[in-house]
Protein backbone atom coordinates (compact mmCIF):
# COMPACT_ATOMS: atom_id res chain seq x y z
CA UNK A 1 0.00 0.00 0.00
CA UNK A 2 2.60 2.48 1.12
CA UNK A 3 4.98 3.88 -1.47
CA UNK A 4 7.75 4.20 1.07
CA UNK A 5 10.75 1.89 0.55
CA UNK A 6 10.74 -0.80 3.19
CA UNK A 7 13.31 -0.23 5.87
CA UNK A 8 16.12 -2.79 5.79
CA UNK A 9 16.32 -5.01 8.89
CA UNK A 10 17.97 -3.23 11.78
CA UNK A 11 21.10 -5.02 12.88
CA UNK A 12 24.56 -3.94 13.94
CA UNK A 13 26.42 -6.93 12.48
CA UNK A 14 29.16 -7.31 9.86
CA UNK A 15 29.86 -5.36 6.68
CA UNK A 16 27.98 -7.42 4.04
CA UNK A 17 24.71 -6.37 5.67
CA UNK A 18 25.69 -2.72 5.55
CA UNK A 19 26.59 -3.22 1.91
CA UNK A 20 23.14 -4.66 1.14
CA UNK A 21 21.60 -1.78 2.98
CA UNK A 22 23.34 0.72 0.73
CA UNK A 23 22.53 -1.10 -2.51
CA UNK A 24 18.96 -1.48 -1.26
CA UNK A 25 18.76 2.19 -0.60
CA UNK A 26 20.14 2.99 -4.03
CA UNK A 27 17.81 0.55 -5.74
CA UNK A 28 14.76 1.87 -3.93
CA UNK A 29 15.61 5.54 -4.17
CA UNK A 30 12.96 7.50 -6.11
CA UNK A 31 15.30 8.60 -8.90
CA UNK A 32 12.38 9.84 -10.93
CA UNK A 33 11.58 12.40 -8.26
CA UNK A 34 15.16 13.63 -8.24
CA UNK A 35 15.09 13.94 -12.03
CA UNK A 36 11.80 15.79 -11.86
CA UNK A 37 13.11 18.13 -9.19
CA UNK A 38 16.21 18.90 -11.26
CA UNK A 39 14.05 19.59 -14.29
CA UNK A 40 11.91 21.88 -12.19
CA UNK A 41 14.94 23.74 -10.88
CA UNK A 42 16.22 24.14 -14.42
CA UNK A 43 12.89 25.53 -15.63
CA UNK A 44 12.46 27.81 -12.66
CA UNK A 45 15.98 29.06 -13.25
CA UNK A 46 15.09 29.83 -16.88
CA UNK A 47 11.90 31.57 -15.80
CA UNK A 48 13.90 33.69 -13.38
CA UNK A 49 16.67 34.67 -15.76
CA UNK A 50 15.33 34.38 -19.29
CA UNK A 51 13.15 37.29 -20.46
CA UNK A 52 11.51 35.07 -23.13
CA UNK A 53 10.24 32.69 -20.48
CA UNK A 54 9.20 35.53 -18.24
CA UNK A 55 7.02 36.97 -20.98
CA UNK A 56 5.44 33.58 -21.60
CA UNK A 57 4.67 32.99 -17.93
CA UNK A 58 3.14 36.41 -17.51
CA UNK A 59 1.02 35.80 -20.59
CA UNK A 60 -0.09 32.35 -19.38
CA UNK A 61 -0.88 33.37 -15.82
CA UNK A 62 -4.36 34.57 -16.78
CA UNK A 63 -4.89 31.09 -18.23
CA UNK A 64 -3.87 29.45 -14.97
CA UNK A 65 -6.56 31.38 -13.17
CA UNK A 66 -9.18 30.40 -15.72
CA UNK A 67 -8.10 26.75 -15.73
CA UNK A 68 -8.51 26.61 -11.96
CA UNK A 69 -11.87 28.39 -12.04
CA UNK A 70 -13.21 26.16 -14.83
CA UNK A 71 -12.05 23.04 -13.01
CA UNK A 72 -13.41 24.06 -9.60
CA UNK A 73 -16.83 25.14 -10.87
CA UNK A 74 -17.24 22.20 -13.25
CA UNK A 75 -16.13 19.78 -10.55
CA UNK A 76 -18.62 21.15 -8.01
CA UNK A 77 -21.45 20.74 -10.49
CA UNK A 78 -20.26 17.28 -11.48
CA UNK A 79 -20.44 16.20 -7.83
CA UNK A 80 -24.02 17.38 -7.56
CA UNK A 81 -24.95 15.66 -10.84
CA UNK A 82 -23.05 12.55 -9.75
CA UNK A 83 -24.76 12.34 -6.37
CA UNK A 84 -28.23 12.72 -7.87
CA UNK A 85 -27.42 10.18 -10.60
CA UNK A 86 -26.00 7.69 -8.11
CA UNK A 87 -29.11 7.79 -5.92
CA UNK A 88 -31.35 7.61 -8.98
CA UNK A 89 -29.48 4.52 -10.19
CA UNK A 90 -29.81 2.89 -6.80
CA UNK A 91 -33.49 3.63 -6.36
CA UNK A 92 -35.24 0.32 -5.93
CA UNK A 93 -38.75 -0.88 -6.31
CA UNK A 94 -41.32 -0.93 -9.05
CA UNK A 95 -43.12 2.34 -8.51
CA UNK A 96 -43.15 4.54 -11.58
CA UNK A 97 -40.83 7.22 -10.23
CA UNK A 98 -38.00 4.91 -9.29
CA UNK A 99 -38.33 3.04 -12.58
CA UNK A 100 -38.03 6.30 -14.53
CA UNK A 101 -35.24 7.65 -12.33
CA UNK A 102 -33.26 4.43 -12.55
CA UNK A 103 -33.53 4.24 -16.32
CA UNK A 104 -32.79 7.89 -16.96
CA UNK A 105 -29.68 7.74 -14.77
CA UNK A 106 -28.39 4.58 -16.41
CA UNK A 107 -29.07 6.01 -19.86
CA UNK A 108 -27.10 9.12 -18.98
CA UNK A 109 -24.12 7.19 -17.63
CA UNK A 110 -24.05 4.82 -20.59
CA UNK A 111 -24.22 7.62 -23.15
CA UNK A 112 -21.51 9.71 -21.52
CA UNK A 113 -19.16 6.78 -21.06
CA UNK A 114 -19.26 6.03 -24.75
CA UNK A 115 -18.57 9.52 -26.10
CA UNK A 116 -15.09 11.07 -26.30
CA UNK A 117 -14.81 14.11 -24.06
CA UNK A 118 -13.93 16.41 -26.91
CA UNK A 119 -17.00 15.37 -28.91
CA UNK A 120 -19.13 15.90 -25.82
CA UNK A 121 -17.67 19.39 -25.42
CA UNK A 122 -18.59 20.31 -29.00
CA UNK A 123 -21.97 18.67 -28.64
CA UNK A 124 -22.81 20.48 -25.42
CA UNK A 125 -21.56 23.86 -26.56
CA UNK A 126 -23.03 23.80 -30.05
CA UNK A 127 -26.07 21.52 -29.83
CA UNK A 128 -27.39 21.11 -26.30
CA UNK A 129 -26.99 24.72 -25.18
CA UNK A 130 -28.58 26.35 -28.29
CA UNK A 131 -31.39 23.77 -28.21
CA UNK A 132 -32.03 24.46 -24.51
CA UNK A 133 -32.09 28.21 -25.23
CA UNK A 134 -34.65 27.66 -28.00
CA UNK A 135 -36.71 25.60 -25.61
CA UNK A 136 -36.59 28.31 -22.96
CA UNK A 137 -37.50 30.94 -25.59
CA UNK A 138 -40.48 28.87 -26.66
CA UNK A 139 -41.51 28.47 -23.01
CA UNK A 140 -41.23 32.23 -22.53
CA UNK A 141 -43.28 32.97 -25.67
CA UNK A 142 -45.91 30.48 -24.57
CA UNK A 143 -46.13 32.12 -21.15
CA UNK A 144 -46.49 35.50 -22.87
CA UNK A 145 -49.32 34.13 -25.00
CA UNK A 146 -50.99 32.88 -21.82
CA UNK A 147 -50.60 36.35 -20.41
CA UNK A 148 -48.40 35.24 -17.49
CA UNK A 149 -45.33 37.20 -18.53
CA UNK A 150 -44.62 40.55 -20.20
CA UNK A 151 -43.31 40.49 -23.80
CA UNK A 152 -39.78 41.54 -22.75
CA UNK A 153 -39.34 38.81 -20.11
CA UNK A 154 -36.03 37.11 -19.30
CA UNK A 155 -37.00 33.77 -20.86
CA UNK A 156 -37.97 35.11 -24.31
CA UNK A 157 -34.99 37.42 -24.58
CA UNK A 158 -32.36 34.74 -23.83
CA UNK A 159 -30.00 34.16 -26.74
CA UNK A 160 -27.34 31.56 -27.36
CA UNK A 161 -24.84 34.33 -27.81
CA UNK A 162 -25.53 35.40 -24.25
CA UNK A 163 -24.01 32.15 -22.96
CA UNK A 164 -20.23 32.51 -23.00
CA UNK A 165 -18.02 29.66 -24.14
CA UNK A 166 -16.47 29.49 -20.69
CA UNK A 167 -19.86 28.59 -19.27
CA UNK A 168 -20.52 26.12 -22.09
CA UNK A 169 -17.17 24.47 -21.45
CA UNK A 170 -17.92 24.24 -17.74
CA UNK A 171 -21.31 22.67 -18.41
CA UNK A 172 -19.76 20.17 -20.82
CA UNK A 173 -17.10 19.10 -18.32
CA UNK A 174 -19.67 18.88 -15.52
CA UNK A 175 -21.94 16.67 -17.63
CA UNK A 176 -19.01 14.46 -18.53
CA UNK A 177 -17.58 14.05 -15.04
CA UNK A 178 -21.02 13.78 -13.43
CA UNK A 179 -21.32 10.34 -15.00
CA UNK A 180 -17.96 9.24 -13.66
CA UNK A 181 -18.45 10.57 -10.15
CA UNK A 182 -21.86 8.88 -10.10
CA UNK A 183 -20.05 5.56 -10.42
CA UNK A 184 -17.65 6.54 -7.63
CA UNK A 185 -20.53 7.46 -5.32
CA UNK A 186 -22.45 4.33 -6.19
CA UNK A 187 -19.44 2.13 -5.53
CA UNK A 188 -18.78 3.80 -2.19
CA UNK A 189 -22.36 3.62 -1.01
CA UNK A 190 -22.89 0.05 -2.13
CA UNK A 191 -19.72 -1.04 -0.34
CA UNK A 192 -21.48 -0.46 2.98
CA UNK A 193 -22.39 -3.74 4.65
CA UNK A 194 -26.06 -4.63 4.28
CA UNK A 195 -26.30 -5.34 8.00
CA UNK A 196 -25.82 -1.63 8.63
CA UNK A 197 -28.91 -0.84 6.58
CA UNK A 198 -30.88 -3.53 8.37
CA UNK A 199 -29.87 -2.14 11.73
CA UNK A 200 -30.90 1.38 10.82
CA UNK A 201 -34.20 0.12 9.44
CA UNK A 202 -34.76 -1.77 12.65
CA UNK A 203 -34.08 1.42 14.61
CA UNK A 204 -36.85 3.13 12.68
CA UNK A 205 -34.55 5.54 10.86
CA UNK A 206 -35.83 7.28 7.76
CA UNK A 207 -33.97 6.98 4.46
CA UNK A 208 -32.41 10.39 4.99
CA UNK A 209 -31.29 9.60 8.51
CA UNK A 210 -29.83 6.31 7.35
CA UNK A 211 -27.76 8.12 4.73
CA UNK A 212 -26.76 10.95 7.03
CA UNK A 213 -25.78 8.95 10.12
CA UNK A 214 -24.92 5.49 8.89
CA UNK A 215 -24.04 5.26 5.21
CA UNK A 216 -22.34 8.52 4.30
CA UNK A 217 -19.87 8.77 7.21
CA UNK A 218 -18.53 5.38 6.19
CA UNK A 219 -18.86 5.67 2.42
CA UNK A 220 -17.10 9.05 2.23
CA UNK A 221 -13.81 7.44 3.16
CA UNK A 222 -14.06 5.23 0.13
CA UNK A 223 -15.38 8.00 -2.09
CA UNK A 224 -12.91 10.79 -1.35
CA UNK A 225 -9.67 9.34 -2.78
CA UNK A 226 -11.07 8.33 -6.20
CA UNK A 227 -12.92 11.63 -6.33
CA UNK A 228 -9.61 13.40 -5.75
CA UNK A 229 -8.13 11.50 -8.68
CA UNK A 230 -11.10 12.56 -10.79
CA UNK A 231 -10.38 16.14 -9.83
CA UNK A 232 -6.81 15.82 -11.09
CA UNK A 233 -7.85 14.29 -14.37
CA UNK A 234 -10.51 16.96 -14.78
CA UNK A 235 -7.87 19.64 -14.33
CA UNK A 236 -5.91 18.05 -17.14
CA UNK A 237 -8.92 17.56 -19.37
CA UNK A 238 -10.04 21.13 -18.85
CA UNK A 239 -7.37 21.82 -21.49
CA UNK A 240 -9.85 20.37 -24.00
CA UNK A 241 -12.19 23.36 -23.65
CA UNK A 242 -9.49 25.27 -25.54
CA UNK A 243 -11.24 23.90 -28.64
CA UNK A 244 -14.04 26.33 -27.80
CA UNK A 245 -11.58 29.19 -27.67
CA UNK A 246 -11.76 29.46 -23.89
CA UNK A 247 -8.60 31.28 -22.79
CA UNK A 248 -7.21 28.79 -20.30
CA UNK A 249 -3.55 27.70 -20.19
CA UNK A 250 -3.58 25.57 -23.33
CA UNK A 251 -5.47 28.07 -25.46
CA UNK A 252 -3.20 30.94 -24.41
CA UNK A 253 -0.16 28.77 -25.15
CA UNK A 254 -1.57 28.01 -28.59
CA UNK A 255 -2.13 31.70 -29.29
CA UNK A 256 1.24 32.80 -27.93
CA UNK A 257 3.26 30.23 -29.84
CA UNK A 258 1.38 30.91 -33.07
CA UNK A 259 2.19 34.60 -32.78
CA UNK A 260 5.85 34.27 -31.75
CA UNK A 261 6.91 30.88 -33.18
CA UNK A 262 8.47 30.19 -29.75
CA UNK A 263 7.05 26.65 -29.72
CA UNK A 264 9.58 24.91 -27.44
CA UNK A 265 9.61 27.66 -24.82
CA UNK A 266 5.82 28.07 -24.83
CA UNK A 267 4.97 24.39 -24.55
CA UNK A 268 7.73 23.85 -21.98
CA UNK A 269 5.95 26.45 -19.89
CA UNK A 270 2.47 25.05 -20.54
CA UNK A 271 3.56 21.55 -19.58
CA UNK A 272 5.42 22.85 -16.55
CA UNK A 273 2.36 24.70 -15.28
CA UNK A 274 0.06 21.68 -15.60
CA UNK A 275 2.64 19.37 -14.09
CA UNK A 276 3.28 21.52 -11.06
CA UNK A 277 -0.43 21.87 -10.33
CA UNK A 278 -1.18 18.16 -10.76
CA UNK A 279 1.87 17.08 -8.75
CA UNK A 280 0.80 19.20 -5.82
CA UNK A 281 -2.75 17.90 -6.09
CA UNK A 282 -1.68 14.28 -6.31
CA UNK A 283 0.44 14.71 -3.21
CA UNK A 284 -2.74 15.90 -1.53
CA UNK A 285 -4.64 12.83 -2.77
CA UNK A 286 -1.83 10.50 -1.59
CA UNK A 287 -1.99 12.08 1.84
CA UNK A 288 -5.76 11.68 1.90
CA UNK A 289 -5.50 8.05 0.82
CA UNK A 290 -3.02 7.29 3.56
CA UNK A 291 -5.14 8.92 6.24
CA UNK A 292 -8.23 7.06 5.11
CA UNK A 293 -6.31 3.80 4.92
CA UNK A 294 -5.20 4.25 8.52
CA UNK A 295 -8.72 4.84 9.75
CA UNK A 296 -9.87 1.87 7.68
CA UNK A 297 -7.77 -0.54 9.73
CA UNK A 298 -9.63 -2.54 12.32
Amino acid sequence: MSAQPTAPPKTSEATPLVQTRITDRLANFPWWALFLALLGVLLVYSFATDATYQNIIVYLSAGVRLTIIVTLVAFSFSIIIGLITAFAQMSEGSNIFSVIARNLATLYVQIIRGIPVIVLIFYTALVIIPASINLLNALGDWMVSMGWLAADNALSSLTSRGISFVIRGIIALAINYGAFSAEVFRGGIQSIDKGQLEASNALGLSWFQTMRYVVMPQALRRIMPPLGNDFISMLKESSLVSVLGVGEITQLGKKYSAATFLYPQTYNSVAFLYLSITLILSMGVKYMERRMAVSEET
Binding site: Q196, E198, A202, L203, G204, P217, Q218
Partner: peptide, 18 residues
Protein backbone atom coordinates in the same frame (compact mmCIF):
# COMPACT_ATOMS: atom_id res chain seq x y z
CA UNK B 1 -43.23 3.99 14.54
CA UNK B 2 -43.59 0.25 15.08
CA UNK B 3 -39.92 -0.37 14.42
CA UNK B 4 -38.74 2.16 16.93
CA UNK B 5 -40.76 0.33 19.56
CA UNK B 6 -39.05 -2.94 18.65
CA UNK B 7 -35.36 -3.14 19.46
CA UNK B 8 -33.25 -5.52 17.44
CA UNK B 9 -29.93 -7.16 18.24
CA UNK B 10 -27.89 -8.78 15.51
CA UNK B 11 -25.42 -11.63 15.31
CA UNK B 12 -22.77 -9.37 13.80
CA UNK B 13 -23.73 -6.40 15.98
CA UNK B 14 -24.12 -4.08 12.95
CA UNK B 15 -22.51 -1.11 14.65
CA UNK B 16 -21.00 1.80 12.75
CA UNK B 17 -17.50 0.57 13.49
CA UNK B 18 -15.54 3.76 13.13
Amino acid sequence: EIRREIGMIFQHFNLVKR
